[in-house]
Amino acid sequence: MAKAGSSPGGDCDYIFKIIVIGDSGVGKSSLTVRLSEDVFYKDYASTIAIDFRMHQMQYMDKRVRLQIWDTAGQERFQSVATAFYRGANGVMLCFDLTHRPSFQHLEQWVERVKQQALPGIPCLLIGCKSDEARDNRQVTNDEAIAWAKQHNMFFIETSAKEKENVQQAFQQITKSIFEDMKDRNGKNLPTAREGSVNLEGQANHKEKKSCC
């Protein structure tokens, strides 16, 4: 929706559209509500289709507005994907540290991103519910890092309940988007989906974390 790299003026320098995806119940809404409203609801009602939130933040010396598209984990995307992914600048890929299947389903989510989003869109892997994981962890930190590395993205564990790493997660995806912008501006990377096939191989894994 927002055009990355533009300088819209007003009260911010950049607007980034972030989409938050992952299995139902992993904590996507809790994460976004914690960021945008700084509250945690114990039993947040399930999200229908898409919800939308805004958050203003500072990154380096830039004022950044995040348009956060919080999705329903159950939705299949064919009918809503076009509007949803269109113009996205970054993806937050969430799973529940206390529920292994949500980690195992990450491949499917990445596949959807590859199909729908711009090639090379920056992604961030987020392991939610780190507070509950203290007693009931089903995905180790090492294997999550390994998965993230394999897919060329960073990994961070968060707890919306304890306000742990939430800001940092959004800072990280913002950082990745800035780096991606810089990278695209420098290399004139393709913007059509068709270009996604070889993009993964082109990316500099050490310097740029773009997943798809």
């Binding site: 139902s24 119940g25 039993d43 947040y44 009602a45 399930s46 984990g73 159950q74 299947p101």
Partner: peptide, 14 residues
């Protein structure tokens, strides 16, 4: 789907 239903129940009643 059953898992989603269970999650929804958790987010509906105590």
């Amino acid at each position: 789907v059953t898992r989603v239903i269970i999650k929804d129940a958790d987010r509906t009643f105590n």
